[in-house]
């Protein structure tokens, strides 16, 4: 085992974290919009959001990466950097899943709460902001933390079409030089595990706490 290789893996790990955070930031914003669009009373908007979700959930992330990598240059823009293209693709992808998760949370709260808030004479948006969203946020946290795990794992796909040098990319490069797949992919896997497992545990713990509180 060579310390330069370990350093390279750690650099890859950092790149993975950066891409994950960017994805969560932009994917979260876009996902929130998707969720609101999905429950809009405007038929065209809600159908549009549903179609968007349907399409994103029916495409492999690899294909989405390709479209985001090659698409902009066709529209006349400069070609995107690997990080930008990967963030773009992962944002689109995550926004659909997060949008769907959050729509469920909002609707779970909205049904019983809607009428109560209606009695108070609030407008629809006021009700949403003052009554629905704060409560939806509470039940949205466990599945959202759970989805973070998906985001981290999905960043590995960015090493393929767009060639973003994150953890699995660096591990592959090292393996090409050393031919020790068990060792270096094993370490890479452990690094992913070190990020994802605590998130999974946390998500389950939060879920359990919520279930107890609701009882």
């Amino acid at each position: 085992m060579n310390s330069a290789y370990i350093l390279s893996l750690l650099q890859g790990l950092w790149a993975t974290v950066v891409l994950s955070l960017l994805t969560f930031l932009f994917g979260g914003i876009a996902g929130f919009i998707v969720a609101l669009a999905r429950i809009s009373r405007n038929w065209a908007i809600s159908r549009g959001a549903a179609a968007y979700i349907e399409i994103m959930q029916g495409l492999p992330l690899l294909v989405l990466m390709g479209l985001c990598f090659y698409g902009p240059s066709i529209l006349g823009y400069d070609s995107l950097s690997p990080l930008t293209a990967a963030t773009f693709a992962l944002t689109l992808y995550s926004s659909a899943y997060l949008g769907e998760i959050w729509r469920g949370c909002i609707q779970a709260v909205a049904k019983p709460q809607w009428e109560a808030a209606e009695c108070l004479g609030l407008t629809r948006w006021q009700r949403m902001r003052a009554v629905i969203l704060p409560q939806a946020l509470r039940i949205a946290i466990p599945p959202t933390v759970g989805f973070l795990v998906q985001i981290v794992k999905n960043t590995s796909i960015a090493s393929l079409v767009v060639g973003y040098a994150e953890l699995s990319y660096n591990a592959k490069i090292i393996n090409n030089a050393t031919f020790e797949p068990f060792l270096y992919f094993g370490i890479a896997a452990l690094m992913y595990f070190a990020i994802c497992y605590p998130l999974s545990v946390q998500s389950r713990a939060l879920e359990r706490k919520l279930n107890v509180a609701n009882r």
């Binding site: 590995s156 796909i157 595990f193 999974s200």
Partner: peptide, 22 residues
């Protein structure tokens, strides 16, 4: 279950397929 669900499929493929070959 925990190990598979908390690591990427891509790395699992590399590990298993290149590993078996090695």
């Amino acid at each position: 279950v925990e190990f598979i669900r908390n690591t990427p499929l891509l790395v699992q493929c590399y590990f298993l397929i290149f590993g078996i070959a090695s």
